[in-house]
């Protein structure tokens, strides 16, 4: 099968429309629904990462661990990919480019890596982009159902922290948890800085987040949490990948205002966080630790401090 245009590409897998046309035909024979990442590096082989590691794609569109005959991504592929993922509107993604990613429709995040352009010592943009990492996001309904009895006590949502290293399914679990809580009628506000949780496109959510969910995407987590707290009278605020000082201040503000917080953080487990002198985790009542042991989203431990 040779994918020729965006319409056909979209029928196969939504991410294909953001892949340069020359490379689409190689990816069209691969089960992308099971893939975790697609990596394009200038002058290097095109690679697809699955649960069991990375594979090269040879010129017969077959996966291989052997880099010989692998399809190579060139400069024009990278340029075309940038145009596709930015929808020919790079100016609209200035902040994202500065932070090294663009989230495309469907909630897939494309990591961007090149040479930083500095202005007064701060990254203003990137040039000579050399690597792109398409992180394929997926919606898995029901994976958070087993957590609900732990997260809700006396009709109150516990402050819950989902802890895991990158790529273990934190965002997928968070998304499902939001959906389940929202469907139970709790007013959930989502501070979605990178648009990965909700995949909002033209004001419509790309993922099902339940009936009573309000989303503020694009703003920094801390700013978004404070705005949501002031304007949407939430019962629960959910956000992804906290860790900066401002994020912690915003979480503290929300918790002290009587609003429950559900968040994720990068770490091996809560103990590692504690050992690194992170005292803010004491604000959380419930900890969910994920790993990659049986694939992304493996729940290793649920610990509730109540």
């Amino acid at each position: 099968m040779l994918i020729l245009n965006n319409e056909q590409a979209l029928e196969y897998h939504p991410i294909i429309k953001y892949i340069p046309k020359r490379l689409r035909k190689y990816l069209s024979l691969i089960k992308l629904n099971e893939a975790e990442e697609i990596r394009l590096r200038k002058g290097r082989p095109l690679m697809v990462y699955f649960n069991d590691g990375g594979y090269f794609i040879n010129d017969h569109a077959r996966l291989s661990k052997n880099p010989s005959n692998a399809v190579i991504a060139d400069d024009s592929d990278i340029k075309e990919a940038i145009e596709l993922i930015s929808e020919s509107s790079l100016y609209a993604f200035e902040d994202c480019l500065r932070q090294g990613y663009i989230t495309v429709s469907g909630g897939h995040r494309v990591g961007i890596c090149g040479s930083a352009v500095l202005e007064k010592g701060i990254i203003a943009s990137q040039k000579n982009i050399s690597s792109l990492n398409y992180r394929l996001s997926r919606e898995v309904s029901g994976i958070a159902e087993s957590l609900i009895p732990y997260c809700i006590k006396n009709n109150r949502i516990l402050n819950t922290l989902i802890v895991s290293p990158p790529g273990c399914g934190k965002t997928t679990l968070l998304r499902d948890l939001i959906r389940l809580i929202s469907q139970k009628g709790y007013r959930v506000s989502v501070a979605d800085e990178r648009n990965e949780i909700s995949a909002v496109h033209n004001g419509y959510t790309g993922y099902d987040l339940g009936y009573s969910c309000d989303i503020l995407e694009g703003a920094s987590r801390s700013e978004a949490m404070l705005i949501l707290l002031r304007t949407m009278s939430p019962q629960v605020i959910a956000t992804d990948e906290i860790g900066l000082k401002d994020d912690i201040n915003a979480v503290t503000k929300a918790v002290s205002s009587g609003v429950s917080v559900i968040a994720t953080v990068h770490s091996e487990n809560p103990e590692t966080l504690r050992k690194s002198g992170t005292d803010w985790i004491n604000m959380f009542d419930c900890f969910v630790t994920l790993s990659h042991r049986n694939g992304p989203g493996t729940i290793e431990e649920v610990y509730c401090d109540l």
Partner: peptide, 10 residues
């Protein structure tokens, strides 16, 4: 250059 520079460039 349509779309492919920063805001001030546009």
């Amino acid at each position: 250059e349509l779309g492919m520079t920063d805001r001030s460039g546009q």
